[in-house]
Design a protein around this nucleic acid. Structure first.
Length: 272
DNA sequence: CGCCAGGTGTGCA
DNA sequence: TGCACACATGGC
């Protein structure tokens, strides 16, 4: 156990080391969290809203039941995985070590596969504020209630024109195709769960508009396959700058975790 | 107002 | 295989 919980009225407090709520929720892996203040966020996952904040090593889940924490948030934030051990296993490389130094408080969220698939279809050739806007409109227009992400079955009944309120541009046709293939079972999430990375990717790129990068994002953030390795423009820059001889094989098991740190790290450096 | 965005499909050599 | 180029929309 690398954290402890305690009840404080209606709130639940988690004490945990080397975790950063802000880095985790604001690093481009999830798009339904809104920053309230520097260390306080409101958001939705698995059809459930949450207000959460962090003060030092203490993370406060406001107005949350222990059952919601156990069934949703503990898993969503991946609190049961030992990131100290993972980070230690990645420290052998000095560039990854530098990225850990900067961004090692990030956790790889366990998001819903279908939501993750849609989110990263929408993310292509797009910027984060607009990605969030499109996803918010998707939920407002087609979710079953105000909290839920619309199901693949629901979206599969729609045509491209009916997605116009999203203003998602050329991506609308990709969302429809994804909904049809997922709801029909042509793309099988159960199968992907127990598949290798390569087979999972092969399954996902059956969808029109899903290529390697989006597929790897879905495997990493939606299926929690920590060896998945999405290569976007930023990671291309990382590979060219720090790993001209190739990404170290020793990091393969947790390549996706390293990728997330490196992504955050190089973007920060570019801003300076 | 232009440039650009956590890419992918398409049409060429 | 490799490489421009278009693609919708709007953030900055």
């Amino acid at each position: 156990m690398n954290y402890t919980t305690s009840q404080n009225g209606l709130d639940l407090e988690i004490t945990i080391k080397n975790f950063s709520l802000a880095q985790t929720l604001d690093c481009g892996q999830a798009f339904r969290w809104e920053k309230q203040t520097d260390d306080s966020f409101c958001g939705i996952a698995y059809g459930t809203t949450l207000h959460v904040s962090q003060q030092g090593d203490v993370v406060t889940f406001y107005n949350t039941s222990l059952s919601d924490f156990d069934s949703i948030w503990r898993r969503y934030f991946d609190f049961d995985t030992d990131y100290n051990a993972i980070n230690n296993s990645l420290m052998f490389d000095k560039n990854i070590a530098a990225a850990i130094e900067y961004a090692g408080g990030i956790r790889l969220l366990k998001q819903e596969p279908w939501e993750t698939l849609c989110s990263f279809i929408i993310s292509q050739n797009n910027n984060i504020p607009r990605i969030k806007g499109i996803i918010a409109r998707l939920c407002e227009n087609f979710g079953e209630d105000e909290y839920s992400f619309p199901s693949a079955e629901k979206l599969a009944t729609l045509c491209i024109d009916e997605l116009s309120p999203l203003r998602s541009g050329f991506r609308a046709k990709y969302l429809i195709d994804a909904a049809q293939k997922v709801s029909s079972g042509e793309v099988n999430f159960e199968k992907i769960n127990s598949s290798s990375l390569l087979d999972g990717e092969e399954e996902l790129i059956k969808i029109y508009g899903v290529g390697k990068k989006v597929a790897q994002c879905v495997l990493l953030y939606g299926f929690h396959k920590l060896s998945a390795f999405p290569i976007d423009v930023w990671i291309k820059k990382v590979l060219a700058t720090y790993f001209s001889d190739g990404f170290p094989e020793k990091a393969n098991e947790y390549a996706g975790v390293a990728q997330q740190y490196l992504f955050h790290y190089i973007r920060k450096k570019e801003l300076l």
